[in-house]
Structure formats: C-alpha cells, structure tokens
C-alpha cells in the first residue's frame, strides 16, 4: 500500500519536473532562478545534480531501512 503511494508520488514528482522543465524552456533568458543557476560558470547546476543524486541514494536507503524494519516486525510476531 505504502509502496504504491510512494511510486505514485514519485511519478507525480517526475511529471511536475518535466512540466516545469518544459515551461522553463520557453523563457530561458529571464527569471531569478535561471540567473542564479547560470552564475559562476554554471557551477550551481552541478551542485544541483549532486544534490539530486545524493537525495536519490538517501531515498533508496530509507526505503531499504523501512523494508527491513517491516521484515523484522513480521519475524517478531510470527517467527
């Protein structure tokens, strides 16, 4: 149940990101966010890339942690 909800959330988040990316493609030259990511030789783009990768790994670890917890609970109730 939780897994289904989680994958739904992930799909929605990905959809939003792609929609946002599409929207931003139309005005690439303006906006404070774009200005920020283009400053300092676009270093902030790579900072963002690393934050995304790190958060992905963390989400994976949290999910694994919860799955193991669930198995431990099952073992405790009916060994």
């Amino acid at each position: 149940m939780i897994n289904k909800a989680l994958s739904c959330c992930l799909t929605l988040a990905l959809l939003f990101i792609s929609v946002l990316a599409n929207a931003q493609q139309q005005d690439t030259e303006s906006g404070a966010v774009n200005e920020f990511f283009r400053s300092n030789g676009k270093i902030y783009v790579i900072v963002g890339v690393l934050v995304i990768i790190f958060l992905g790994i963390v989400l994976f670890l949290i999910n694994l942690d919860r799955k193991i917890s669930k198995l431990e609970q099952r073992e405790k109730t009916n060994p």
Partner: peptide
C-alpha cells in the same frame, strides 16, 4: 542520527562547491 547525516551531507555538497 540518520536525519542528521542527511542534513550534514546536503550542507557539505552545497557548501563544498560554493
């Protein structure tokens, strides 16, 4: 402590590059 690890590492990644 897991939350602390995540927060510290996000800080390290952002500050480490900037």
């Amino acid at each position: 402590w897991k939350a602390l690890a995540i927060l510290l590492l996000i800080y390290v990644i952002i500050a480490g590059f900037t």
